[in-house]
Design a protein around this nucleic acid. Sequence first.
DNA 1: CTACTGTACTAGGAGTAATAATACAGTTAA
DNA 2: TTAACTGTATTATTACTCCTAGTACAGTAG
Lengths: 125, 125
Amino acid sequence: MFELDVRSRKPIYEQLVEKLKQLIINDVLKEDEKLPSVRELAQQLTINPNTIQKAYRELETQGYIYSLKGKGSFVHPSGKVDNEEELKKVREELKKLFAEAIYLGMTSEEIAALLREVEGGQQDD
Amino acid sequence: MFELDVRSRKPIYEQLVEKLKQLIINDVLKEDEKLPSVRELAQQLTINPNTIQKAYRELETQGYIYSLKGKGSFVHPSGKVDNEEELKKVREELKKLFAEAIYLGMTSEEIAALLREVEGGQQDD
DNA sequence: CTACTGTACTAGGAGTAATAATACAGTTAA
DNA sequence: TTAACTGTATTATTACTCCTAGTACAGTAG
């Protein structure tokens, strides 16, 4: 499915969250598609099931997946995500990053161009 | 100068980097202004000098300050920052965050509005 | 019932963050 | 030059988080 760097300073479960988030956002994992089970993915990646579960829990908190006891974990459909908490964090992050980018020399137009680029590649709903 | 959360999961030196970066970006700390010395700030915040130094080293790597042995650490003037390494990271971060924001339901216009908001508050050079 | 699923808990080892103490090197002013 | 400041580096120790391992409970589907 993908690879992890166990020697990285970044925790494995955080790497997992990022990678899975990318797969969901880029529509590699489709809406309501079932993710590998905690134990299954743990075996594939040769890491502990607890670590997988920690990543899944985080993804659920952030609104990217939903889990049903006994059934599995599934991709949360985009557009139906309603997570004001997470949106607030993202807005704050965006503001910080904009200020940072400008300080380092990027122009607003460069940033806007980057946005259009990403926007073109998404087109959900 | 500011406060830190020693109980946070986020390392103290990272909190320091963020806070100082904000002060620099928001022009609270002016160009070429001298930062508190490692020992002085350590005493003020009741934390170890090594932790301060780690934060300063990181800020220097990212291009926000420069340090002169025997003299002190100073704010790196905006506009004169030339850190392609750091810019690359910021661009990647922006792209990730844009995709994330869109997935969570933000429109491009909302994001663009946020950019204009930040842009208005900066106006360096 | 059986075999899957998610979820929770405890205990232990490994690695990083932070502290403490010391030292060296360069600047500045008396 | 000396004294007092600056950044920088090193080592040892403690505290905390990540990760693992093992076990257990709850819900689902055949």
